[in-house]
Amino acid sequence: MWYEHFTDNKFISMIYTKVPTLKNLRIEKIEISREGDRLTVGFDLPFFADKPPKKWIEGRYTTTFVELDFFDIQEVSIKASSNTYRGDIDICKDEQTDLLIVNITGTVEAKIIAGSGIIQTVNGY
């Protein structure tokens, strides 16, 4: 599963009985920072957590938002055909190089090859 490629993945496993695949997502941001050394991808998961934290229930949240940070960027390409970003995200690890390979397809297309990644944020709103 996609989240197994990241450190700090316990929280997402705690709030979902089955963590959703990254299909038909609303992609909120793709951000390059630290002079190209870090790339952030932020998106809404396709369905809300089935075991949300108490704060989310009390706040009447209905959407789970995730930010993934990638470091040691080896390659990046981005192309968009719309100003509404929707798509699928496929994340795998190249066994020979130990690099993360991220492919985003949809109204925004991106390819990211990175040395490492973390689940930076999992929030409800």
Rank of each mutant, 00 (worst) to 15 (best):
T105L: 08
T121Q: 02
P46Y: 11
W56Y: 03
G117Q: 12
I91L: 10
L100T: 09
L100V: 01
V19C: 06
V66W: 06
N123F: 10
V108F: 08
Y61S: 01
D72V: 14
E35L: 07
S13Q: 12
W2V: 05
D94E: 11
I15F: 05
E58D: 04
F48M: 02
T64E: 04
R86P: 06
I32S: 07
F70Y: 10
W56T: 02
A114F: 09
A80P: 11
Y3E: 13
A110I: 01
F6N: 01
G42Y: 10
N83D: 14
F6D: 00
Y85S: 15
F43W: 09
Y61G: 08
V66A: 07
T97F: 08
E67C: 10
A80W: 09
I32D: 08
N9L: 10
T21V: 08
K54W: 00
I91E: 03
K79V: 13
E109V: 02
K54P: 02
L68V: 14
F43V: 11
K111Q: 09
F11D: 03
K79F: 15
K54N: 03
G59A: 10
A110P: 05
D90M: 10
E67H: 15
V19T: 07
L25K: 14
S13F: 10
E28D: 12
M1G: 13
K51M: 12
I91Y: 03
C92H: 12
T121G: 02
D50F: 11
L39D: 05
V76K: 10
F6Y: 14
K93Y: 13
S33G: 12
N123H: 13
T97G: 09
I15C: 05
I12V: 06
I119A: 01
G117V: 01
E31Y: 10
S116M: 02
N9S: 04
E67W: 12
E4D: 05
R38N: 12
V108I: 15
I78K: 15
A110N: 02
Y85L: 14
G42M: 05
F43D: 04
N9Y: 05
S77R: 15
R34G: 05
N24C: 05
W56E: 05
F47C: 04
L68E: 04
W2H: 08
A114S: 09
N123W: 01
I57S: 03
G124Y: 03
Y16H: 02
G87R: 02
F70A: 11
T121E: 04
E28P: 01
N103L: 13
S13N: 13
T40R: 03
F48D: 03
T105H: 02
C92I: 09
L99Y: 12
N123P: 06
P52A: 06
S13R: 13
F71Q: 06
I113E: 01
Q96C: 07
K79T: 15
I15W: 00
D90I: 15
D69T: 15
P52D: 00
T84K: 08
K111M: 04
G36D: 11
W56G: 06
Q96V: 12
L45S: 02
I30A: 00
F70C: 06
T107M: 04
T84N: 08
S82P: 08
Q96K: 15
E67S: 11
I27D: 02
E58F: 00
R34Q: 11
D37H: 15
K55R: 12
